[in-house]
Nucleic acid binder design. Structure first.
Length: 359
DNA sequence: GAGCCGTGGAT
DNA sequence: TATCCAAGGCT
């Protein structure tokens, strides 16, 4: 929440926010969840449900990747009550492929809190939003400003980059985050804060890009200190990351004569939590085979290669026939051909299926 | 605070 | 091929 003792924008800040709002009025990208500046001026208010859903999907995820998921979710669950009433597996399946699956679990938790305890109405304050599962400082500020036009300050990767360049901040992230937040807060206007928030993020996504910023057409080219210093491309600095180790493992695809597959619902916590997957071994430096039942397992020729956030994975794909009488162990389930949709699988598991299908 | 948590596109 | 990185949150 904006501190009570925050001063109002000074004159220079008013000039800067006006410049970028003018740019946004002309250059705002049409997005499925966006109310354009013209629509907003005409009295159209954003739907908090759609803003919330889009913001959760956009966490660490590109606009291009989100669009189709957003359309499918809103078509299938048009309101927060509809989503709250959905089955867990349906939501996890619809999220499959988008990544960071804790978001989907928290999305459902949040929807149920709002539907069951708040009459389907989203909180209208930053502090109220912040209490909800899956809503952190960024998302609470984004919903507050975009949906309710409250002067909260969004600080995402775009805003961090734009502020680091505008003020030529040399200190590396993430340590410099508080300073960047202060700078961003001083620019946040009381007039049209929702459009302003989207304007700065659009600027970061299109013009003030990480690799080669298009400073020549930037609405802030004149005041930008990094541009005059020639440091824009190098900012923001970041503390170096650790290299990713490689892990190996086995997955087991068992298919019955009638087309049934043996799958498992992964536990709610941890990697791919709550998602469907193939039974498999531990994933570690040197994995040992751990078949789900004794059989004549055959190895597929090729391996699945996949990279997660913090390690690379090489999977050996093993296949066999699923006996008619085989009953699934705890956590496992037998899925009929009619119920099995590869699109319900997280990407790494779908890759294993694709490999089986391709040979 | 630092590690964990996906995926795909750009370079 | 390898790295970066994207409208971050949770523990």
């Amino acid at each position: 929440m904006r501190d009570l003792n925050d001063c109002a924008q000074n004159d220079e800040a008013v000039g800067l926010s006006d410049q970028i709002l003018t740019w946004y009025d002309v250059n705002a990208r049409p997005l499925p969840w966006r109310v354009s500046p013209a629509e907003r001026a005409g009295g159209v208010a954003p739907d908090p449900y759609r803003i919330w859903l889009s913001e959760v999907m956009l966490q660490q995820t590109t606009v291009a990747a989100v669009k189709d998921y957003f359309h499918r979710f809103t078509a299938r669950w048009p309101t927060v009550q509809d989503l709250a009433a959905a089955e867990d597996g349906a939501v996890m399946g619809e999220w499959a492929g988008l990544g960071y699956y804790a978001r989907a679990r928290n999305l459902l938790k949040c929807a149920r809190v709002i539907a069951n305890e708040q009459a389907g109405v989203f909180p209208t304050t930053y502090d109220g939003l912040l209490k909800l599962p899956g809503i952190g400082p960024y998302t609470a500020a984004a919903i507050s400003s975009i949906a309710y036009d409250l002067p909260e300050t969004v600080l995402d990767g775009n805003v961090e980059r734009v502020m680091a360049r505008l003020y030529n901040i040399d200190a590396p992230l993430p340590g410099s985050k508080p300073q960047l937040k202060t700078l961003a807060a001083a620019l946040t206007p009381d007039r049209r804060p929702g459009d302003y928030a989207q304007a700065v993020m659009d600027l970061g996504a299109t013009i003030c890009s990480p690799k080669s910023p298009a400073c020549g057409i930037c609405p802030w080219r004149a005041p930008c200190l990094a541009r005059s210093a020639g440091t824009a491309q190098a900012l923001p600095r970041k503390t170096p990351k650790k290299p990713k180790p490689t892990r190996r493992g086995f997955v087991y695809l068992a298919r019955a004569a009638n087309g049934d597959w043996l799958l498992e619902r992964r536990p709610d916590k941890g990697l791919l939590g709550g998602m469907l997957g193939w039974p498999g071994s531990e994933w570690c430096e040197t994995a040992a085979p751990e078949p789900p039942f004794a059989s004549d397992w055959q190895s597929l020729g090729a391996e699945v290669r996949h990279s997660f956030t913090h390690f690379h994975l090489i999977l050996q794909v093993m296949v066999t026939d699923l006996p008619r009488q085989h009953s699934p162990a705890a956590g496992q389930l037998r899925v009929s051909v009619d119920d099995f949709r590869p699109s319900d699988l997280p990407t790494v598991m779908r890759k294993a299926f694709d490999l089986w299908q391709g040979q």
